[in-house]
């Protein structure tokens, strides 16, 4: 086999997807498949780190040390999820700086749900139950996504999300069973987060721009409407146990369909928030840019320390914790900025 033709490669790719095999970073893949993945994984990664903001808003005001420790752990997990996903996006040949730059300049989006404010402590519970619940419904099928690194990141994320959802549910339950004022606070939070959570599944199937192709590529396994219905069906009985109502007068069990019917979603609101006109769009991106800028000195100091440390080792090579000098040397040689992600994927496109 001397040369691999473009046709051979396309055939091999299609066959791998059809056979439910995973596509790995160094495999050939169509440019559009790569671009779709970069867009989706980047948006997902951005959502994780922007999602730290609405909840971090309540860390200093958590009602007990227990709730505070839980919330810190959850927000830290969101940072971790962002990192898993940025790593997955990088295997497609797109650098971390480029992704962050596109987020900061508004050229890549994050989930519109995070443009809503967290007005009370109960919002933290409602986010855990509904927003993380919707995220899990979306993400569990992504564990079988055709792109290996994305699927593996999702497996890890889904394991951790389960704690997020349960802590939210427990917190809402405590409020719901508390004083009348606490109960009212929980109900108000659910009223505000219910509809935006349903919008998290994206536009209806007949208006979803990328759905059909993504499903053909097995990046996506179920349609937006299918996952939204699944989520509604899961939530209704959970709300009953909470002793809270969902703010939809049309919500009703449909015996024939075997599903709950629900009222129309306000897609005008969804599009407005997506366009940047939600309650917190400006605040979220400003805060993200500020955090990045204010962290610059830390990154610079770490890079300067690493450079100095490496130079000193090259000349003096002091007795170090690593006994094998060849390995130590390898690490130094590659620690410069040129050691990007390049060697593992030469076909970078965005």
């Amino acid at each position: 086999m001397a040369t691999v033709t473009a046709q051979d490669r396309t055939t091999a790719f299609d066959a791998a997807v059809a056979a439910d095999e995973r596509i790995e970073p160094r495999d050939w893949m169509p440019d559009a498949y790569r671009a779709t993945l970069v867009r989706q994984i980047a948006q997902h990664a951005h959502s994780e780190i922007i999602g730290m903001q609405p909840e971090a808003n309540w860390i200093t005001r958590a009602p007990s040390l227990r709730r505070k420790a839980i919330l810190i752990a959850k927000v830290q997990d969101e940072a971790g999820h962002g990192l898993y996903l940025y790593s997955a996006a990088e295997t497609l040949g797109t650098g971390r700086d480029e992704l962050l730059d596109k987020l900061h300049s508004g050229r890549q989006k994050y989930s519109s749900i995070f443009n809503y404010p967290t007005l009370t402590w109960a919002d933290v519970g409602a986010i855990g139950w509904l927003v993380d619940g919707a995220a899990i419904t979306n993400q569990v099928p992504l564990c079988r996504c055709s792109y290996g690194p994305y699927a593996r990141a999702m497996v890890r994320i889904c394991k951790e999300e389960s704690f997020h959802q349960r802590q939210g549910y427990e917190s809402l339950l405590a409020l719901s069973r508390g004083t009348p004022a606490q109960h009212a606070m929980a109900q108000d939070a659910v009223n505000r987060w219910w509809w935006p959570s349903l919008m998290m599944f994206g536009p209806p199937d007949d208006e979803s721009a990328h759905s059909a192709q993504s499903m053909a590529w097995k990046i996506k396994r179920h349609s937006n409407d299918e996952l939204r219905q699944r989520f509604v069906d899961i939530c209704v009985p959970q709300a009953e146990t909470l002793g809270l109502t969902l703010p939809d007068p049309e919500l009703k069990w449909n015996e024939d369909r075997g599903h709950y019917d629900f009222g129309p979603i306000d897609w005008t609101e969804f599009r407005e928030v997506l366009k940047g006109n939600g309650p917190c769009n400006e605040q979220r991106i400003t805060q993200r840019r500020r955090a990045h800028d204010e962290g610059a000195w830390v990154r610079e100091a770490a890079a300067a320390y690493a450079a100095k440390h490496n130079t000193a080792d090259d000349t003096a090579r002091p007795a170090h914790h690593t006994a094998r000098p060849t390995e130590q040397h390898t690490a130094q040689a590659t620690a410069g900025p040129a050691a990007d992600t390049a060697p593992l994927h030469g076909e970078a496109t965005a």
Partner: peptide, 8 residues
């Protein structure tokens, strides 16, 4: 501020 990523 920085132009390149840290090594992977």
């Amino acid at each position: 501020t920085e132009s390149t990523d840290w090594p992977l």
